[in-house]
């Protein structure tokens, strides 16, 4: 049986390694940092971890409805495609920095892309 993306990337350990790198990038990205700034950082970090686990094909229970509900307050504040793209960029840059092969990064990007309409409430 072939390995899943999550297994190929290195599982939970890979997510642990990626979460701080990713979160630092997001916080220093002026296009999107406002969406992340006001909230409790530890709670945010936990959310980033949940996001990365999902993006890397790991175990998660998110439904499209969860994605809509979880981001509705951000959509109300103006969350749009440009912000979504910025997050995708930061994700790719994080995985590159951690020497994840390009084809696996593409797989992760595809998983994220599949949530776009739910995240943006369309």
């Amino acid at each position: 049986m072939s390995q899943s993306l999550f297994e190929k990337i290195g599982g939970t350990a890979a997510v642990d390694a990626a979460v701080d790198v990713f979160y630092r990038k997001v916080l220093s990205d002026e296009r999107i940092s406002d969406f992340f700034d006001a909230v409790d950082m530890e709670r945010q970090a936990a959310k980033q971890k949940a996001f990365l686990t999902m993006a890397l094909g790991g175990p998660n229970n998110y439904s499209g409805a969860d994605m809509r509900r979880g981001h509705a307050h951000l959509v109300a504040r103006g969350l749009n495609d440009a912000h979504f793209d910025a997050v995708m960029e930061n994700l790719a840059a994080t995985l590159q920095e951690l020497n994840v092969p390009a084809e696996l990064i593409a797989e992760a990007a595809a998983i994220c892309e599949s949530t776009r309409n739910d995240v943006l409430g369309r």
């Binding site: 701080d20 979160y23 630092r24 916080l27 220093s28 950082m41």
Partner: peptide, 15 residues
């Protein structure tokens, strides 16, 4: 504390 947590994190400390 809130500001310091962010700045320490951005300065490279792990969460």
């Amino acid at each position: 504390v809130k500001l310091a947590r962010k700045r320490a994190f951005m300065a490279g400390a792990a969460m």
